[in-house]
């Protein structure tokens, strides 16, 4: 019984890396945005999500330029 089933975690990261590379976006940035969304996904109203995400992006840009 050694043909264990693969979990999907690696696959998730794999797609993340794939698309980040293809669209020339930062993997970590995309990952953190998805993480943010995952923390909000079960909420009926994701109030403030847009602003939070914009802030994450702007902060990242700031970090890059500084």
């Amino acid at each position: 019984m050694n043909n264990d089933y693969q979990t999907a975690e690696e696959e998730y990261s794999l797609i993340l890396e794939e698309v980040a590379k293809e669209f020339q976006v930062d993997t970590r940035l995309l990952h953190s945005l998805i993480e943010y969304e995952q923390s909000k996904v079960h909420l009926l109203k994701r109030r403030g999500a847009k602003n939070d995400l914009r802030q994450i992006i702007e902060r990242w840009i700031e970090e890059q330029t500084s």
């Binding site: 797609i15 698309v19 669209f23 020339q24 976006v25 940035l29 995309l30 998805i34 992006i57």
Partner: peptide
């Protein structure tokens, strides 16, 4: 925009 394109594909 880059992130949007990437997330669409994602």
């Amino acid at each position: 925009r880059g992130l949007l394109a990437a997330s669409e594909q994602f």
